[in-house]
Design a protein around this nucleic acid. Structure first.
Lengths: 225, 225
DNA sequence: ACCTGAACACCGTTCAAGT
DNA sequence: ACCTGAACACCGTTCAAGT
């Protein structure tokens, strides 16, 4: 403790000093407000009232920035465990929480698909896998079931988010679904008989229920006690 | 037929004339040879011996170019049906074919996640769903099972491809898995008990078997005849 | 130790001008 | 109808120079 003089004479640190946390929080704010294309080292620097080069002192590059932003959101969801519910319901709750979070922050979806063993993905595998013992699944299945659930959740949620994002904001959901259903029925009958048949179920279907049905399928496939 | 004079006096079309097909085929070649970052309107134009602006006459933008390139590969996989196998084996074969195709062309993975209802995704849903009747799944389940399978296949394959891509080429698979396993065991015990426990199964596991296990879980979860 | 901002080496896309 | 290529409006990233 002796001899440290640099910080003594200085006024207390400005509350708006740069830091990794503040950079990531600001990045999340930009991503949420204006989408993935709005996050730029220049726009981020402007929001932080500094130059683009300053950010590189705290963050290696844009990929690391996105990974950190993704982890911040995912950690918030997986940490909120229901605890008193059945293991099946716990898994459903966490999965749905991730689905909603990716729907609310669509940029997570694009990133999760390309950072497989990063911290955020590990949190998802942990959230799924740690409930499998209570569920009664045999230990030999745990690895495959947990990673299958994680893959499904990421894949389905990313596609749902991309879908919601690509919809023009001035078209309501019902007419968008009706348009999609009509396009499905216009596909070639010889090549797409199945898609044409299920097109009728597209309007009025619930995205979250459809998502949970997939989770239930995987859980139903695991051996029961 | 009368009065058309423009094409008459001309020499026969050069075989290297620009066309949508040639543009997409060349784009696939660049993507496969040097990866996603190598595909540029400038590099593509150079490979086609023209200027970047010429490409825009045949393709609306880069997204459409990637969608068309993705569809070209996916169509090749879903069209190759086994026919004489059991419906379960047919689904496994198509799923594994997609897994291998995405492993061989990793750029498909990143694109599939963000073009949900595009033609390539429809082909995957069709390939899965059209076998469900023979499998004995009740019609009420078809919609959910087919889309769940498609989401899982895309999600798992995209992550696998991203994983393979991020591995440095001078490190062999065994040591890469060993390194990943060690990193898993170094995670916080309180936060990641499950991941630490399954880390031992990481070395020596087979990516394709793990992938197929997920397909089997979903199929096992569907009601049987 | 940390910040600044000009500069480098690129992008996707457009568009007047050509044939 | 289709092609050309310069130009526009950007990017991520680096780095000498500052404090």
């Amino acid at each position: 403790m002796g001899g440290v003089s640099a910080a003594v004479g200085r006024p207390s640190r400005r509350s708006d000093a740069l830091s990794r946390e503040r950079i990531i929080a600001t990045a999340v704010a930009i991503l949420d407000a204006d989408g993935e294309s709005a996050l730029t080292f220049r726009s981020l620097a402007a929001a932080l009232a500094t130059g683009p080069g300053a950010i590189y002192w705290h963050v290696a590059n844009k990929d690391e920035l996105l990974a950190a932003a993704t982890d911040a959101i995912v950690a918030g969801v997986t940490a909120a465990a229901p605890a008193d519910a059945s293991p099946h319901d716990q898994i459903r709750t966490v999965a749905l929480g991730l689905f909603d979070a990716i729907d609310a922050h669509p940029w997570i979806g694009s990133h999760l698909a390309r950072e497989p063993w990063q911290l955020a993905s590990m949190r998802i595998v942990e959230a799924m896998g740690s409930r499998l013992t209570d569920l009664g699944a045999p230990a030999a299945q745990h690895f495959n079931v947990a990673t299958a659930l994680a893959s499904y959740v990421c894949g389905a949620a990313a596609q749902n988010a991309a879908n919601a994002r690509s919809a023009s904001p001035d078209v309501d959901r019902d007419t968008a679904l009706a348009t999609a259903a009509r396009r499905w029925t216009e596909l070639d009958e010889a090549e797409f008989p199945f898609v044409r048949r299920i097109a009728a179920q597209l309007p009025g279907h619930d995205d979250r229920e459809q998502f949970l049905a997939g989770v239930d399928l995987i859980l139903a496939g695991t051996a029961r006690p």
